[in-house]
Amino acid sequence: MAIRRTTRKRLRAGLVYATLVAVTALTCFPLAWAALTSIRPNEEMLKTGLIPEHVTAAHYRALLAGRSMYFEAGGAYRPSTAPAQHFLAWFANSVVVSVATTVLSVGVSTLAAYSLTRFRFPGQSLVPYVSLLGYMVPSIIYVFPLFLLIVPLGLADRLPSLVLGYVSITLPFCMWLMWAFLKSVPIEVEEAGLIDGASRFQVFRLIVLPLALPGIIATSIFSFIVAWNDYLIARIFINTITQLPLTVGVMHFFEGVHVDWGLMMAAAVLMTLPLAVLFMFVQRHLIVGFGAGAVKG
């Protein structure tokens, strides 16, 4: 009986592993294929063997140093506009905008959520629900009017316009998530602190913030992903090639004369890398944090 159970257990574990491996292989294949393409020489582009016969870093070098998209010959004058040369600038823009968006969304929504869960005033219970409703509004609806608002503010074609645009996407949900978290932080601890003579700011900093940390991490990840992934807003708001974030910049590779797939996949890999690093650190919190609410993608 005991032996049968162990065998069954082993069999079951084997089955679970086999299924897991199959599902994971299928899921990860697109990313793996992109990575493999990015190190495949152009001459081998049409071959579909899993592993490239030769490995090259040419596509990555081209991303950083620029590669002409047009046939150049005969000592033709070379203008200063090959899009690949801007990859680093796009990368920096994406980092700046995503970090700024994250800081702003988390800051504003934490303050608001704290206010809603700790103070009493009319309309207090309604705000989070209205806010969540706001999160369901498709961005296609407000992106054009928002642009018309950005221009008189003097922000058009500048990175701060993107931060504003992204915050308008993230804020309602961040606020909902923080509200859900802070609601579950027991108020008694804070009251004890206050009675002990700590100021509200001390209480907020020393007691509330540590307890709300999983929520803050979840909202941060969420804001970062939204900002890093957006295409629509940046496409409408930004024109200058050096001011673009990665998403819109990389789509410029589809213009010109041909599609440079090696370059494209190298860009795809480098664009995904920061998220992979981030993901490794926060994976644990992701399930806890997002489990509290539900997240838009």
């Binding site: 899921t27 990860c28 697109p30 990313l31 294929w33 992109a34 992903i225 890093w228 992934n229 295409y231 990665l246 998403t247 990389v250 789509m251 494209m264 996949m265 860009a267 795809a268 664009m271 995904t272 998220l275 992979a276 981030l278 993901f279 993608g297």
Partner: peptide, 13 residues
């Protein structure tokens, strides 16, 4: 992880 991958990247791939 696919949830974190930018839409542009997936579309390209």
């Amino acid at each position: 992880f696919p949830y974190m991958v930018p839409t542009v990247v997936i579309a390209l791939i």
